[in-house]
Simulated scan of single mutants.
Amino acid sequence: MKFEITPIAYIQSCYKEKFATPRQPGLVSAAKGQIQLIPPFNHPDTVEGLESCSHLWLQFVFHQCLDQGWKNKVRPPRLGGNKKMGVFATRATHRPNALGLSVVKLDSIQIEKQSVILHVSGLDLIDGTPIVDIKPYIPYSDSLTHARYDFAQLAPKELSVIFSTPAQLALNQQDNREQLSTLIRQVLAQDPRPAFHEVDEARIYGAKLDCFNVNWRYLKTDQETTIEVVAITLL
């Protein structure tokens, strides 16, 4: 038996590539996006009552992985990229049906003629991701305080983020500098580098966030590892 799934919407996201996109939703509250419903699903009737929800479940397609196949076992980044686990015991992007599930905060609903746009935040989806279903998050049934996942029971430790003088000057020139600063800090605090990378102060990393190229490096002392943003430039 086979099923055909049709996208009902596409998301416009501040994440323009996989690298530096958070591995879980809700970790970067400053990450904002817009879910643009497409015909014939963009009728105002389809979202009537949705304003009563604070959060939404999004079912989506890992569209950048469709032609890359999948394996029975994968290497989760949370385990350092060295230990293998069964694909169904992880949230790996390379899955048999390439489907993902995410929860986001619903900030507002915009309806204009035949346009229905859901403004959301806390997302972990790449720009252009196809959305195949939207459901309300129901706290009494969806929030299970007694649930456990032994491999990742707690959120990962966040790193401190500082800005070099050139990066701070570039940031100060932006009209949305406070929002951009918060986005960069929250994203980089999740430590987006590959799990097998050791700290190398000479290595410069880069990612596309919103309309900017952001470059950073890692600084290590005896006490902690710190991220230094070294450059912010327009795409």
Rank of each mutant, 00 (worst) to 15 (best):
S181D: 11
D45K: 09
F41L: 03
V116E: 06
L101E: 02
L154Y: 13
F212D: 03
T221W: 10
H119N: 13
R75E: 01
T145Q: 11
P44V: 07
A189K: 05
P7T: 00
P44F: 05
Q186V: 14
I134F: 01
D210K: 14
A189Y: 05
G86E: 02
K113D: 15
S13N: 10
L27S: 12
A20C: 15
P76K: 03
L154G: 01
F88H: 07
I8T: 08
I184W: 03
Q24S: 10
P44S: 04
N42Y: 04
L234V: 15
I184G: 04
T165W: 09
Q168D: 14
Q179V: 14
T221K: 09
L27E: 09
H43L: 12
G80L: 08
F3P: 03
L37G: 04
E17D: 12
I109H: 06
P25D: 12
K113W: 10
E178I: 14
V104G: 01
V230P: 04
K16P: 08
D127Q: 06
T221Q: 09
R148E: 08
Q36D: 13
Q223F: 13
P25C: 12
P22E: 02
D45T: 12
L219P: 05
Q114H: 08
R78E: 11
P192N: 11
V74N: 00
L37D: 03
L79T: 02
T21S: 10
A189W: 03
R95H: 00
A9L: 06
R185P: 07
S181H: 09
L171S: 05
V103S: 07
T225F: 04
A152G: 10
Q153F: 08
V47G: 09
I184N: 06
Y140E: 04
P139V: 04
F41D: 05
C53N: 11
A195E: 10
V161T: 13
I138W: 04
I162L: 15
F60L: 02
K83V: 14
N97A: 00
N215H: 14
K135N: 06
A31Q: 06
D142S: 00
A31H: 04
T46C: 09
V120T: 06
S13W: 11
Q114I: 14
R177E: 13
L27D: 10
V47S: 05
Q174T: 15
